Computed example of a mutant assay.
Amino acid sequence: MTILIEQIENGAQAEEQKTLTITNDLVLDGGFAEPKEASNDGFLAPEINAFGHSFRDYDAESQRQKTVEEFYRLNHIHQTYDFVKRKREEYGKLDKIEMSIWECCELLNDVIDESDPDLDEPQIEHLLQTAEAIRKDYPDEDWLHLTGLIHDLGKVLLHPSFGGLPQWAVVGDTHPLGCAFDESIVHHKYFEGNPDYHNPAYNTKCGIYSEGCGLDNVMITWGHDDYMYLVAKENKTTLPPAALFIIRYHSFYPLHRCGAYTHLMNEQDKESMKWLKIFNKYDLYSKSKVRIDVEEVKPYYMSLIEKYFPAKLRW
């Protein structure tokens, strides 16, 4: 099963594609070798999203624009350091339900991410689009395929079984708390309504942290990224460390798209970032109206789930 996405070919597009597929030499812990550079006939990043606009254009006039901006207004006001601390303690207990990875995938059938300006399809479509696009380019790296499938499973926090958290507490771009809000964060103007914005301890470059402290020691806004990271880690997944880094920080766009907050990273973060940049191409540019035959690909992903996860997980 492959994904075919039409693309307008021109010089600028070719240069963009060349930039997106460059990788760095890296070997993962546990002997997972870095994927080779994608072939020329592999997945091609389209120029426009499902609405006909350039990707991540938060100002484009579309049926989604107003919904997305209102989402970020609420997100920036309510995501505080204390709020995230409480949520990590609450959901870190993993006492909501026991279920398999695939059962969780199926729970996402009715979930639409209101923060996303590029797509309004159910989330399971995005998971499979991402995984299949990676699989097309890197057929031998099964851990990366599975990471594509599960990276957004934390969005089940929107489901009533998990407390039905509001969208602003589950989805959207993430950023650190406890230090200044970088100007690169989308819809930055709404931070003026956040109590942390007026706390002197939190409004300097490093805030309560120190340079090079490592992202693991930084409080990031609460949502599906951090939750799925906790689920995978505490359920003893055998996925490599880079997979957990991708799951935890794939929505941290100020970092991996704008270069903000790099002063907080340690050396391990910088190594794992190489993998996140590879993954990000597929997470972002696979969003299209192309449909995936779920039943056709399900056996393959079930085999990967069995390889890297227990049959039932605590959530």
Rank of each mutant, 00 (worst) to 15 (best):
Gly172Tyr: 00
His145Ala: 05
Asp120Phe: 13
Thr130Gly: 11
Leu165Gln: 03
Ile124Cys: 13
Asp110Gln: 10
Glu106Trp: 13
Leu127Met: 15
Ser161Phe: 03
Lys189Gln: 08
Ala180Gly: 12
Gly148Ser: 08
Lys96Glu: 08
His175Val: 00
Leu119Tyr: 09
Pro176Lys: 02
Ala169Glu: 10
Leu157Asp: 01
Pro166Met: 06
Gly178Glu: 02
Leu108Cys: 08
Leu128Phe: 15
Val170Pro: 14
Val111Gln: 14
Cys105Ser: 11
Pro195Asp: 14
His175Met: 06
Gly178Cys: 05
Asp113Ala: 05
Leu165Val: 03
Arg135Leu: 11
Asp110Trp: 07
Tyr190Asp: 09
Asn109Pro: 14
Phe181Ser: 14
Leu119Phe: 15
Asp116Val: 04
His159Asp: 13
Asp182Ile: 12
Ile97Lys: 03
Glu125Gln: 06
Lys155Gln: 06
Leu146His: 09
Glu98Cys: 08
Ala169Val: 05
Val171Asp: 10
Tyr190Cys: 02
Ala131His: 12
Leu158Asn: 08
Leu157Thr: 01
Trp168Arg: 03
Leu149Gln: 00
His198Met: 12
Glu125Leu: 06
Gly193Ile: 15
Glu125Thr: 10
Arg135Met: 03
His187Arg: 07
Glu121His: 15
Asp120Trp: 15
Leu149Arg: 00
Ser100Gly: 00
His187Thr: 04
Asp196Ser: 09
Asp196Gln: 02
Thr130Arg: 13
Asp140His: 12
Asp140Glu: 05
Glu141Cys: 15
Pro166Ala: 00
Leu165Trp: 08
Leu158Glu: 10
Glu132Gln: 15
Asp173Gln: 14
Tyr197Val: 11
Val186Asn: 08
His126Pro: 06
Lys155Met: 01
Glu183Gly: 14
Glu106Ser: 03
Thr130Cys: 11
Asp118Lys: 04
His145Asp: 05
Leu128Arg: 04
Asp137Met: 07
Asn194Gly: 06
Asp173Ala: 12
Ser100Gln: 10
Cys179Thr: 12
Glu125Val: 00
Cys104Ala: 03
Gly193Ala: 15
Phe162His: 10
Ile124Arg: 12
Glu98Thr: 12
Ser115Ile: 07
Cys105Val: 15
Leu127Arg: 11
Glu183Met: 12
Leu157Phe: 05
Leu94Val: 02
Leu94Lys: 04
Cys179His: 06
Ile185Gly: 01
Glu98Asn: 11
Leu128Gly: 09
His188Trp: 00
Asp116Met: 10
Gly154Asp: 06
Ser100Asn: 11
Lys155Gly: 02
Leu157Tyr: 00
Leu128Gln: 04
Ser115Arg: 03
Ile134Asn: 07
Pro117His: 01
Asn109His: 15
Leu157Ser: 02
Asp118Leu: 10
Gly164Phe: 00
Trp143Val: 12
Gly154Leu: 02
Ile185Ala: 09
Leu107Phe: 05
Asp118Cys: 04
Tyr138Leu: 11
Leu157Arg: 07
Val171Gln: 06
Asp95Val: 05
Glu98Val: 07
